[in-house]
Amino acid sequence: MAQAIVEVEHLNLSYKNVRAVQEVSFMLERGEALAVIGPNGSGKTSTIECVEGLRKPDSGSVRVFGKDPWRRRGEIYRQTGVQLQETEYPAKIRVEELCRLFEHFYERPADWQSLLRQMDLEDKRKRPAGKLSGGEKQRLSVVLALMGRPKLIILDELTTGLDPEVRQNMWTMLRAIREHGVAVLLVSHYMDEVEALADKLLYLDEGRQRFFGSQPAFRQWAKSRLSPDVWQEGGTLEQLYLQLVPKTERITMEGIL
């Protein structure tokens, strides 16, 4: 039987009067990659932050390695690495110091020098974290996420702001770590990325779960919801997704240009 790494059942979370997450349930097993997709404000990051133990759900159950991440956060992070959507570090801390600091947090840390090399950050070792570019910060966050040799890695918009070459390298890296049995939970707006990397999809919209299942099952589900004249057999995930999400009004730029 496959080993469940993340189990979420009937998750609900509100901010004041806004119901950010409603009745979301999903599961992630060892060596699987699950992508959480949906428009901005659909509850993706809120859902992920409940799994990360950074937010306390209003109701429902979240289990990571069989433990409640809100109550036993320290324990789950012995086996979990994360890259948060927005990460800041003390401005004057050097890349090397940050790596050494994180190295001390784990019992069996990875070789951070090798990670820096692989993320093409070796020449930035002495640079203050505050002086790194957006892409460099993103790559550094991956180095730190991998520092504890995680069995689960959570990546929130990993490749946002990265150039195409670095994106490709990230994909290669993710495929390689999955081969080692690491479960990957990622949030992404890039459907080409999701199509290339994810086994399963969790599609959220306005905090509600619209779909959870495999990529082929998602295509079947989408086909059943779209009219035959819109449906494209063999279309990309991005084409499919754009047909599913609510449309914005046509942009005409009338009266502006």
Binding site: Y77, P90, F105, G148
Partner: peptide, 12 residues
């Protein structure tokens, strides 16, 4: 939110 990042480590 620097502390938030440290909350996502074993030390908190």
């Amino acid at each position: 939110k620097i502390y938030k990042r440290f909350d996502a480590t074993p030390v908190g």
